[in-house]
């Protein structure tokens, strides 16, 4: 393909990738920032979102758009509740000790993944696109649904930004993120906030899953790769920064598309991973600045 159309194609593909990735990474970053814990099970909440979408859409017959809209409504709630429950049952009792939390979320990762294997089964299962329109862009075709994914992600990101910056809830989150002890002294119920944030982080990832399933199919092993990419995005974008996360997601999403084609997909991943290592080593005090580790 000629360079011009090729760049257009790679940018479009990269934007779809970046749209979903920024949602997943944003969920991770929220939990990372406010609760100061690493949620290794984040990718599995994404996967859970995908398989529940499949269930919802196979439950609803008729126009696939109805099932899709229903999923968009129901799936984040179910996934969010699951996360709230696991925080309430497990993480709360560990007092969010960084080491114990990482180990426990690895445990949650395996439990969710294997639970999916038991109930959903080992096969990849497709979900029909809510509308099946192929746009012919002369040099190549592109699915209209993919534009819809980009568009929805932008709307969602704007909504999240509004909530974070303009509402009282957002203020509470920012206060907790800045200094949880002082926030507590001012009467913010920290443990409730943590509980909600953990659920919210998973729910945002689940929205990403609902959007991507009509393109990529649901599979019980699909949580691993987005988790690593989300880590990369969050670390490169800077912790707790919405703009940074989105910018990093676009960078990673685009470069994956472009480097994969010119060189090899593994090289794209190796480079991104190396970049993370460099960022972390240059900031030797750790992700959480100088406050604590």
């Amino acid at each position: 393909m000629e360079l011009g159309p090729y760049l257009l194609f790679a940018s479009l593909e990269g934007l779809v990738h970046a749209a979903v990735l920024s949602l997943i990474a944003l969920g991770l970053s929220l939990v990372f920032g406010v609760m100061r814990i690493v949620n290794v099970a984040h990718g599995e909440f994404f996967m859970l979102g995908a398989i529940i979408t499949w269930w919802v859409s196979s439950f609803v017959s008729g126009n696939p758009a109805i099932g899709f809209l229903l999923a968009l409504l129901v799936v984040p709630i179910i996934v969010g509740m699951t996360a709230v429950l696991s925080d309430w049952l497990i993480l709360r009792h560990l007092k969010y000790d960084p080491e114990a939390t990482i180990i426990a979320t690895i445990g949650i990762l395996y439990i969710i993944q294997q639970f999916a294997l038991m109930t959903f089964g080992p096969d990849a299962k497709p979900v029909e696109q809510p509308f099946n329109i192929r746009l012919d862009l002369y040099w190549f075709g592109f699915s209209a649904y993919k534009f819809f994914v980009i568009f929805s992600a932008i709307i969602l990101l704007l909504a999240i930004w509004l909530v974070m910056s303009k509402t009282k809830f957002g203020l509470i989150l920012r206060a907790t993120q800045l200094d949880s002890e002082t926030a507590q002294a001012f009467g913010i119920p920290i443990s409730r906030v943590y509980n909600i944030v953990f659920g919210l982080g998973a729910a945002i990832a689940a929205v990403g899953a609902v959007l991507i399933v009509p393109i990529q199919q649901a599979h019980y092993l699909m949580g691993g790769e987005p988790l690593l990419l989300a880590f990369i995005v969050v670390i490169i974008g800077g912790l707790g920064s919405l703009k940074g996360t989105v910018a990093a997601a676009i960078l990673i999403g685009m470069s994956d598309g472009i480097i994969s084609v010119f060189f090899s997909p593994n090289i794209a991943k190796i480079l991104a991973t190396l970049l993370v290592v460099v960022v972390l080593i240059i900031k030797p005090n750790g992700l959480f600045g100088t406050t604590k580790t």
């Binding site: 393909m1 593909e13 990738h17 990529q216 199919q217 599979h219 790769e225 994969s260």
Partner: peptide, 30 residues
């Protein structure tokens, strides 16, 4: 282990007469 494939298709030259494809794994439908 790839789950999305579009990004590889621009590598297929324009003057290709026959595309020989073989793929395996859970993502074949994609």
């Amino acid at each position: 282990t790839e789950s999305s494939f579009s990004k590889y298709f621009p590598k297929i030259p324009r003057d290709t007469e026959v595309l020989y494809h073989v793929m395996v794994g859970p993502a074949v439908l994609t």
